[in-house]
């Protein structure tokens, strides 16, 4: 167990609970700060509790990663973002399921997931964020009943910014391979001989 990480995880989760109402007042901080912070808390917890000791088969890792992605999709539904603001049960479900089903699950499964699936999901995440950005900026109706239209548009630009940031974070390392570009090939050749 890595205690500093566990303490950090608890601190992040605690701050989320503490600043819940402030963060939820604005859809941008609700969706782009609170939800990711909860996922990070779960991720840190899984790392601190020794996720490396779990030796997942690739097939199981793929399945777990998909479950994590479905949990992300669920919490991208405007219906449940709205519901979490008015229904304490949904709010509690959010604070439990985002750290566990997204953060912890992906912490355990992501590295063992097949690189094709990882690439597929990354590409889809970028395109989906782009579509969401377009939708939230241009929708003629309110998508969340709890938030104003101007805030919805700000969230749209937020999605666009995140899409750009993620595409940089994911693409730039490809041009600076730390191990001479061996990683992807190693995996492929490993498969060929298996």
């Amino acid at each position: 167990m890595r205690r500093p990480l566990l303490i950090l995880s608890i601190a992040v989760f605690g701050s989320c609970v503490l600043f819940r109402q402030t963060l939820e007042r604005d859809p941008v901080t609700h969706v782009l700060l609170l939800l990711p912070a909860l996922a990070v808390a779960g991720w840190l917890m899984a790392v601190s509790l020794g996720r490396h000791r779990l030796r997942l088969r690739e097939a199981d890792a793929n399945a777990l990663t998909l479950l994590g992605v479905f949990a992300i999709l669920f919490w991208m539904l405007p219906r449940y973002i709205d519901a979490s603001l008015t229904n304490p049960l949904v709010e509690a479900a959010k604070f439990i399921s985002v750290p566990l089903c997204i953060g912890a699950v992906l912490a355990v499964s992501w590295k063992a997931t097949h690189p094709f699936l990882r690439g597929f999901l990354k590409a889809n995440a970028l395109s989906m964020l782009g579509v969401l950005a377009f939708l939230y900026i241009h929708a003629p109706v309110r998508i969340c009943n709890s938030y104003l239209e101007v805030d919805q548009q700000r969230l749209g630009y937020g999605f666009l910014f995140v899409a750009l940031a993620l595409s940089l974070v994911w693409a730039v390392p490809l041009f600076f391979p730390a191990d001479g570009g061996a990683t992807p090939n190693k995996h492929l050749s490993g498969r060929a001989t298996a």
Binding site: A59, R79, A83, C144
Partner: peptide, 24 residues
């Protein structure tokens, strides 16, 4: 993977009344 897909799509299906209601 198939089990995860079935579970995930099933939950989303139930949560959105058969993908008919994505918003409140």
């Amino acid at each position: 993977v198939c089990a995860a897909l079935a579970l995930g799509i099933g939950v989303l299906w139930l949560a959105t009344d058969g993908f008919r209601a994505l918003t409140e």
